[in-house]
Design a protein around this nucleic acid. Sequence first.
DNA 1: GTCCGAATATTTTTT
DNA 2: ATATTCGGAC
Length: 722
Amino acid sequence: MDMDLSLMNKEQKKAIKTTEGPLLIMAGAGSGKTRVLTHRIAYLLGEKEVPSRNILAITFTNKAAREMKERVAALVGGGAASMWISTFHSMCVRILRSNINYIGYENSFSILDPTDQKSVIKDILKRRNLDVKQHNPRNIIGYISDKKNQLIKPDQAISEAASYPDTLYSEMYSDYQRILYRNSALDFDDLIMLTIELFDKEPKVLEHYQNRFQYIHVDEYQDTNHAQYRLINQLAKKYRNICVVGDSDQSIYKFRGADITNILNFEDDYPEATVITLEQNYRSSKNILDAANAVIENNTERKPKALRTARDGGPKLQLMVSDSERGEAETIIGNIQSLSDEHSYSDMAVLYRTNAQSRAIEDALVKSNIPYKMVGGMKFYDRKEIKDLMSYLKVILNPNDDISFERIVNTPKRGLGPKTIDKLKAHGQNTGISIFEAIKESDFIGIPKTAVVKLMGLVDLLEGLKHKSRFLTITELVDEVLKHSGYRKMLEGEKSIEATSRLENLEEFKTVTMEFDRDNEISDELLFTFLSDMALVSDQDSVEDDSGVTLMTMHASKGLEFKVVFVVGLEEGIFPSRRVAYDDRELEEERRLMYVALTRAEDRLFLSRANSRMIFGKTESNIQSRFLSEIPETLVEGKEAVGGSASDGMKKRSGKPKRSRVLTNNSGVTFSIGDKVEHKKFGDGIISGIKGEGDSQELDIVFTKAGVKRLLANFAPIEKKE
DNA sequence: GTCCGAATATTTTTT
DNA sequence: ATATTCGGAC
């Protein structure tokens, strides 16, 4: 067995060998934490002779889980098959699959994806006669997710709701949960919450898993939410062998419930804990690391930690300033091309704050014929045809899944429109049965004869497929569905480019099912296993194409590394995002995101900003990002030249004469970033951003007393000073 | 029941 | 700029 620890540093060795009791590993970026984790597991297996079934390792992504499995296997050979190395969610699915009946759910439950969630919420809004425009489903889903992450059940949410809109949202949460229950459906948050509920209600089940998982590892601990925290604590309570790894400086998922205090307070939870800090960075050159350290030091909410690197200074960081997002893209492409002698494209990545920023870069890459891959664009599994097919499979497994049933009832068109479906739904709701069951009574609820016949045909189709499903592989079942539902015929009949591509995607999907069929025998559980596997994978997992420049959001880049990294759009309002720019806590999270982005780079780091860019169809100018200002000039090539003051925004603007046709307050006045102004009511302020042109131009002004306001340049009662 | 054009809303999102 | 969504015409 390859358990050569001689290449490890002192802290790493200690982390590997501290197997008993709670252990907190604060692992800085690039400090080799995966290596430590995998070696620790190998050490437990090899030296400590812990049976593999007693080890649990939890990650957030399938990719991380797969990688860890492979690396452990490489260290210990086979024999680790019965070890659970999985994500939070797939662990919970496995536990719930055999135990969810204890808490009253069907064991063939479906898993809702965000699209399904949205349609449930829309249904609820409709039934409550509420306007979707006033109540954005996203907010409601966010509310529900928050509550579930806090382990707050609907009843408690209702009684605790103090004011609007919580009073309403908590009621909708209650509706939502009732609907899911009736559909035998769980959302992602339920997987965690209900596992905890199961453990609370059935101590025997909990104890079984406590005994099984005597050594627990949690990766990316800074990203755990409260529910995940509770779950881990339940499991670790008996043996207290819990090893958590994380870096509070890389906590960037607060907006989805990640609670940074879980890692910061670990020592309070486990006073006997050993704490090890890994500060030796093996990834980046010194200049890159110095820049990252300089940025993160501006955060107050952190434990001081400074990464060291054994590598030399390396080239300086390089700042690129362009006029527009197109100019930015061209500058990047220029650098990519000149670097391509030394580096392969796959060693380069372009990181941006928002997905929308990818467009300009993508365009430029296409024009230059440079291969690239984009992470997180239009997701394969989000495509309509894939979701439709999945809905057929879900209904075959669980006919009471109204959410999926509704998706397919008229796809392909069967002449079963909203009228018919509404009647079925209303009947189902009145009598507490599913749509599928309601169909059997459709004769009596005012549905026209022709529609009844069509409904019966659909029932026959689905029941026939359900019957067959027991004897077929998933690939064969998919073919049966496509054939007998008429879905394939529908697409073939369309003859459009789009339909052709949909057909191709369905074929592509079969490579996924074939892979699944290779690993799984035909059994009664096959379809359930397939669907719950599928619900928990994302495309990031399947991107195994390692040629081409990588384009992705900074969030998506966490955990990855590249020789050459471009961090783009370093402008106030873009990054940090305008929405957080004046909230200290959220600003610190943005800064951590900057830290994550910078520390992805091994050898070369390019920073880019544009003097103006098109946002939502309007041209916007913004001053350089404060995060850029926080990097010492001595580390950056090209920074001293532009200085980073707001004046370059002015330089650029002065070339373009402004005109105003309408006589207004400020017609003919040209505003530039950095201008001092006085407002009739708000007092003194400085222009921090400009949006749009001409008559509709808007100004972001930071007022000394009144905070930030966005005002119309022409009409605001402001005067330019000096 | 279906289709088309206006109205609307746009951070990030490992599962 | 653009994707989605909704209302009204056919």
